[in-house]
């Protein structure tokens, strides 16, 4: 642990950021604990609602082996609409088809497939967003001319765009990535534009007093100042690109991703609602993993800054 402390110090992390190992551990424990508490609370509310107004609990259907007749009968909490949490978790271990592999194996493969689409889409969209944001911030006239179309592009539903993209690019994971990129580039463009214009006018004057070139102003001042804005956009885009990938899979007829899985289990919902819930859970996990990945890179890229130090 001491070595970690030394490394952090060597990389110019300020003293208050380089917390003592004990503090770090305490913080990690606290965060894990609060996360666990939220999960427990959600489960309690979920099962509590089913206890009050769900279908009858039969001993063979719950891990506690109890029998219970809820006092009310609500539609939303029926076993079909809201399966028991243990049924959803249990679904991961059961095969989705007779003699097939367990669901978790199918969902894992689907998640990896969708994640790849999302990452490529995110990369394409972010690159486009950074480029557009940079161009628009430099040329005000261009901003006035292009902005209405950029905004308009986001008012067209992705479901209308997706089939066209598939026709142009042929159905395949790459066309799905392009659809994901379509959702990704917008927040990155807007935030890059905003961030590049965020520096204090005095800082711009300071650079001018150094007779700094336009490139130097961009790389030494505007871009670093824009980074917090850009990372905020990245976090939005990371989750949006997962959503874009899942939706993009539907019209392209791709069955290997999470979109395909969701569509499939949606069709067989009556016979196994817990499988759709499991697929939704898997999609959420992909989104969270992507988000955390970006947050991790952000923590490195923005090390030393005040806003970050306070959030740690």
């Amino acid at each position: 642990m001491l070595r970690l402390y030394e490394i952090l110090y060597k990389h110019n992390l300020p003293i208050r950021l380089t917390m003592k190992p004990v503090q770090r551990l305490r913080k990690a424990v606290r965060q894990t604990l609060s996360f666990a508490i939220v999960i427990v609370l959600i489960t309690l509310v979920w099962e509590g609602a089913k206890w009050l107004g769900g279908d009858p609990w039969r001993p063979e259907n719950n891990p506690f082996g109890i029998s219970h007749h809820p006092p009310f009968r609500w539609k939303v909490t029926s076993d079909l609409n809201l399966p028991h949490t243990w049924q959803i978790l249990g679904a991961f271990g059961e095969p989705a088809r007779r003699n097939g592999p367990p669901l978790i194996q199918i969902l894992f493969a689907a998640a990896v497939y969708t994640f790849r689409e999302a990452i490529v889409g995110f990369a394409l969209g972010s690159a486009l967003g950074l480029l557009l944001g940079g161009l628009l911030s430099h040329f005000r006239l261009l901003e006035r001319g292009c902005m209405p179309y950029i905004v308009a592009s986001q008012t067209v539903p992705i479901l209308a765009i997706a089939p066209m993209v598939i026709i142009w690019l042929k159905a395949g994971w790459f066309s799905v990535a392009v659809i994901a990129a379509y959702l990704t580039f917008f927040p990155v463009t807007i935030n890059t534009l905003r961030g590049l214009r965020s520096p204090d006018p005095l800082a711009v004057e300071l650079m001018r007093s150094y007779a700094a070139s336009a490139w130097a102003v961009l790389w030494k001042l505007r871009f670093p100042a824009a980074l917090p804005y850009i990372f905020t956009a990245f976090k939005i885009s990371a989750t949006a690109s997962v959503v874009g990938s899942i939706i993009g899979e539907l019209p392209s007829g791709i069955r290997s991703g999470l979109g395909g899985a969701i569509l499939n289990f949606n069709q067989y919902y009556i016979s196994g609602p817990q499988r759709l819930w499991a697929a939704i859970l898997a999609s959420a996990v992909v989104g969270i993993v992507f988000y955390l990945l970006i947050a991790l890179i952000e923590a490195y890229a923005l090390r030393g800054r005040k806003a970050l130090a306070e959030s740690l």
């Binding site: 800082a203 300071l206 007093s209 007779a211 001042l221 670093p224 005040k306």
Partner: peptide, 16 residues
Amino acid sequence: DQDYGMVFQTPVLFEW
């Protein structure tokens, strides 16, 4: 030629 240095009312240090 950078014959002068400038100090403003605020420090204008780059936070990164």
